[in-house]
Amino acid sequence: MFAPILRYRGLIYAVTLREVKSRYIGSTLGPLWLIVPPIFMVFIYTVIFSQIMRARMPGVDHQYAYSVYLCAGLIAWNLLLELVQRSKGVFLEHSNLIKKSSFPKFILFVPVLLVALLNSVILTLLVLGFMYLSGFPMPPSIAYLAPVLMVVVMLGLVTGALLANLNVFFRDVGQLTDIVFQALFWATPIVYPVGILAEPVQAVLAWSPLYPLIVNAQNSLLGQAVSLQQLLYPFSVSLLVLALAIVLYRRSYADLLDQI
């Protein structure tokens, strides 16, 4: 897998650069738009929820605890969402390149990963910077955010790869994915503490592979208990989705080239 990445590093660099430039071409601020949205997002969640709405996080005695809870969940969620959203249309977006050149098609997912990681790193650094400036305790459990995000990356990429295959044959997949992820957002404890839910509801939500990822991301920044064993469930789901994506791709490869 890594040999083709090294071999086609020029292609990866070109596609990644085009991906970044295409987002901000013609804009006045240009690359500054990489940091303006996350800065605005952190500002909204810290000022609106903590200062105006006076939202508080149960069990954590700090005025910005709820803001950190929100931002921690959004770090994991935004990374997953960007990977899925950008990956689902990768074959259609690069159809001309696929038809004219011969290369391993999974190469096209590497630029998606690089740009998503860049955005995620920027958001994470901004959140950590806010925690430091606001005097929020910087717990050692922050280190656990890294393995959580690694599983998020795997789940997002393989889900995006599966949807990319399906999207070639069923163009409604893109719109349907948007609706499903809107529902998943509210079915995942990102904007509300999971403790306010009844135990039967918590048990139902726990079936989602996103549940342990979001909860452990939040706990890592709040200094609460993090369970790496809980990551085995979304990791196993990722392997299953990966197997489905590979089987579908191999069986539909010839038709895929015709459809794009």
Rank of each mutant, 00 (worst) to 15 (best):
Y132C: 12
A116P: 00
S101V: 13
V68P: 09
Q51Y: 11
T124K: 08
A76M: 02
W77C: 05
M41G: 01
F40L: 15
M57F: 08
G89V: 02
W77A: 01
V42E: 05
V36I: 15
L123W: 00
F130T: 11
S101N: 14
Y66H: 12
S102E: 13
I107H: 07
F43I: 03
I44Q: 04
A65P: 03
G129A: 10
A55N: 12
S120I: 02
L108H: 08
V127M: 09
V42H: 10
T46P: 01
L128T: 03
Y132E: 11
T46S: 15
L97F: 04
K99Y: 00
W77L: 06
P104C: 07
R54H: 14
P38T: 07
M131D: 10
S101L: 14
F43T: 14
I39W: 02
Y66I: 10
F43S: 14
C71A: 13
V42F: 04
L125G: 00
L126W: 07
Q63F: 12
F109D: 10
N78L: 14
G89W: 02
F49N: 10
I44K: 02
N119T: 10
L114M: 12
L83P: 11
V112P: 04
L79V: 09
S102M: 11
N119F: 00
L108A: 05
M53L: 15
L114N: 05
E93K: 13
S87P: 03
S101W: 07
V121T: 13
V110C: 06
L118K: 05
A116Q: 04
W33H: 11
L70W: 01
P104N: 05
F130N: 12
Y66R: 12
L118P: 01
L34H: 00
A65E: 08
F103E: 06
I122C: 08
I48P: 01
F103P: 01
R54G: 06
L114W: 03
R86A: 12
L117Y: 03
I52Y: 12
I48C: 00
M41T: 14
N96I: 09
K99E: 08
L123R: 09
G129I: 01
L113H: 07
I48K: 00
L133S: 15
L83D: 11
H94C: 02
D61M: 10
